[in-house]
Nucleic acid binder design. Sequence first.
DNA 1: ACCTGAACACCGTTCAAGT
DNA 2: ACCTGAACACCGTTCAAGT
Lengths: 165, 165
Amino acid sequence: MPEARAAEAVRVARGLLEAEGEAALSMRRLAAAMGMRAPSLYKHVPDKAALEVALIAAGLAEAGAAMDARRGSLAGLAAAYREWATAHPHLYLLMTERPLPRERLPAGLEASAAAPLLEVTRDEHEARALWAAAHGLVALELHDRFPPDADLDAAWAALVAAFTR
Amino acid sequence: MPEARAAEAVRVARGLLEAEGEAALSMRRLAAAMGMRAPSLYKHVPDKAALEVALIAAGLAEAGAAMDARRGSLAGLAAAYREWATAHPHLYLLMTERPLPRERLPAGLEASAAAPLLEVTRDEHEARALWAAAHGLVALELHDRFPPDADLDAAWAALVAAFTR
DNA sequence: ACCTGAACACCGTTCAAGT
DNA sequence: ACCTGAACACCGTTCAAGT
């Protein structure tokens, strides 16, 4: 897919998503931002799902790198996870609230994003539980599901404590 | 809101949501299922958001009751949470993936749904972390985000172990 | 009191037609 | 090769009009 104009579509799509949220990521809005009409987009990109796959892949790589930079400590990884997600809330939710399109993703991407967590846990099952816990805290925060007075720093500390010994 | 026809709208809306998912819960589909056109719905219900609030309130009450029935044991609560959520996947996601409309919800509903978790943890922060962990596992499962060969029973066991002592 | 069609401002996508 | 308008099958919502 990545001919010059397709790469531009992905770049502009990410800007729309991050700046204005999921609702702004429409083929009509994107086309307008590129100076064309929606049908023309289909000469450069197969469909909207392909655009989303490209955004998901980029997000996974970046989030993985952010965690890799804090490799080794559970508390550091948790902080890196929360920071990356809250810095890219709309992209984060796009990455986690639909099935992972594994066959359209670069080989090894999922595994390399998960590696820092596996390193810091006993086994894959504990790594899965830890990932889910971090995801749950982030997702509920991003969706404004906690009471307004909830102390989320304390909740993260409790999570880290639970998975430490 | 709950005049006879409004109550029917909520009932039929829940049927559509649970049977066919979020996309089926449209004002046009709902109206058709009730033998009318979409604009007529607005004589009985303020808007789609009000319908969703009614569904969320019902879901919270039911999930709370399911957990109340397994009060006391962390493992039992975790199992009750997972079972209720996977039995009502579309309603569960509707309940958790948007801000809680607290001012339109029956008083005390949120607190009573949270009570069984508070009972089994050290403090509110640990309760929050535990809820988030359970939510994360459920949400990632419902969205098909785990590898197809992931052992989710083992992940739930690891979660329970982490929060036990 | 209740329901309607028409309309408005949107979606993703296809396709014949224009340059 | 690239872009277009028109169309199709959808959204939530408003409103004047009908019974």
